[in-house]
Lab assay of single mutants.
Amino acid sequence: ETEYTFDDKREADRAAKEAQNNGLRVHVTKDGNRWKVRID
């Protein structure tokens, strides 16, 4: 399990989409004014 934090939602969405394309499970959550992408 890996977690990334992004300031920009577009960057978070791009990272999530890339991980999904690689067959990974992805969870995107909002943390204040930042975005967390957790990859299982």
Results as ranks from 00 to 15, higher is better:
residue 1 E to K: 11
residue 1 E to T: 14
residue 1 E to M: 13
residue 1 E to I: 14
residue 1 E to N: 11
residue 2 T to S: 11
residue 2 T to L: 14
residue 2 T to K: 12
residue 2 T to E: 12
residue 2 T to Q: 12
residue 2 T to I: 15
residue 2 T to Y: 15
residue 2 T to C: 15
residue 2 T to D: 10
residue 2 T to W: 15
residue 3 E to S: 07
residue 3 E to M: 06
residue 3 E to D: 08
residue 3 E to R: 03
residue 4 Y to R: 09
residue 4 Y to H: 08
residue 4 Y to C: 14
residue 4 Y to S: 06
residue 4 Y to Q: 09
residue 4 Y to M: 13
residue 4 Y to D: 04
residue 4 Y to N: 06
residue 4 Y to E: 06
residue 4 Y to K: 08
residue 5 T to E: 11
residue 5 T to N: 07
residue 5 T to K: 04
residue 6 F to C: 05
residue 6 F to N: 01
residue 6 F to W: 02
residue 6 F to P: 02
residue 7 D to L: 11
residue 7 D to P: 06
residue 7 D to N: 10
residue 7 D to W: 05
residue 7 D to M: 09
residue 7 D to I: 09
residue 7 D to H: 08
residue 8 D to L: 05
residue 8 D to K: 06
residue 9 K to S: 05
residue 9 K to G: 05
residue 9 K to Q: 10
residue 9 K to P: 11
residue 9 K to Y: 14
residue 9 K to H: 09
residue 10 R to N: 14
residue 10 R to V: 13
residue 10 R to W: 15
residue 11 E to Q: 09
residue 11 E to R: 04
residue 11 E to I: 05
residue 11 E to M: 10
residue 12 A to H: 00
residue 12 A to G: 01
residue 12 A to N: 00
residue 12 A to Y: 01
residue 13 D to R: 08
residue 13 D to E: 13
residue 14 R to C: 11
residue 14 R to V: 08
residue 14 R to I: 10
residue 14 R to S: 08
residue 14 R to D: 08
residue 15 A to F: 15
residue 15 A to H: 09
residue 15 A to I: 13
residue 16 A to D: 01
residue 16 A to G: 03
residue 16 A to S: 05
residue 16 A to V: 11
residue 17 K to W: 08
residue 17 K to C: 11
residue 17 K to A: 12
residue 17 K to H: 11
residue 18 E to P: 01
residue 18 E to L: 10
residue 19 A to F: 15
residue 19 A to W: 11
residue 19 A to S: 04
residue 19 A to V: 03
residue 20 Q to W: 11
residue 20 Q to M: 14
residue 20 Q to F: 11
residue 20 Q to R: 15
residue 20 Q to N: 07
residue 20 Q to P: 01
residue 21 N to M: 13
residue 21 N to V: 08
residue 22 N to F: 01
residue 22 N to S: 11
residue 22 N to P: 02
residue 22 N to G: 07
residue 23 G to S: 02
residue 23 G to H: 06
residue 23 G to L: 02
residue 23 G to E: 02
residue 23 G to N: 05
residue 23 G to R: 03
residue 23 G to C: 09
residue 24 L to C: 10
residue 24 L to H: 14
residue 24 L to R: 08
residue 24 L to K: 09
residue 24 L to V: 06
residue 25 R to Y: 06
residue 25 R to P: 06
residue 25 R to N: 11
residue 25 R to A: 10
residue 25 R to D: 08
residue 26 V to H: 01
residue 26 V to F: 02
residue 26 V to Q: 01
residue 26 V to I: 04
residue 26 V to W: 01
residue 27 H to W: 05
residue 27 H to V: 14
residue 28 V to T: 03
residue 28 V to K: 02
residue 28 V to M: 07
residue 28 V to H: 00
residue 29 T to L: 09
residue 29 T to K: 08
residue 29 T to C: 14
residue 29 T to R: 09
residue 29 T to D: 07
residue 29 T to G: 05
residue 30 K to R: 11
residue 30 K to G: 04
residue 30 K to Y: 09
residue 30 K to T: 08
residue 30 K to C: 11
residue 30 K to M: 08
residue 30 K to I: 06
residue 31 D to E: 13
residue 31 D to V: 12
residue 31 D to R: 03
residue 31 D to C: 14
residue 32 G to Y: 00
residue 32 G to S: 01
residue 32 G to D: 06
residue 32 G to A: 02
residue 32 G to I: 00
residue 32 G to H: 01
residue 33 N to L: 06
residue 33 N to P: 15
residue 33 N to I: 03
residue 33 N to E: 10
residue 33 N to S: 07
residue 34 R to V: 05
residue 34 R to N: 08
residue 34 R to H: 10
residue 35 W to S: 04
residue 35 W to I: 05
residue 35 W to T: 04
residue 35 W to R: 03
residue 36 K to D: 02
residue 36 K to N: 06
residue 36 K to H: 10
residue 36 K to S: 03
residue 37 V to T: 02
residue 37 V to Y: 00
residue 37 V to N: 01
residue 37 V to Q: 00
residue 37 V to D: 03
residue 37 V to R: 00
residue 38 R to V: 15
residue 38 R to T: 14
residue 38 R to I: 15
residue 38 R to G: 05
residue 38 R to M: 13
residue 38 R to E: 09
residue 38 R to Y: 10
residue 39 I to Q: 02
residue 39 I to F: 07
residue 39 I to P: 02
residue 39 I to D: 02
residue 39 I to E: 03
residue 39 I to L: 07
residue 40 D to W: 11
residue 40 D to T: 14
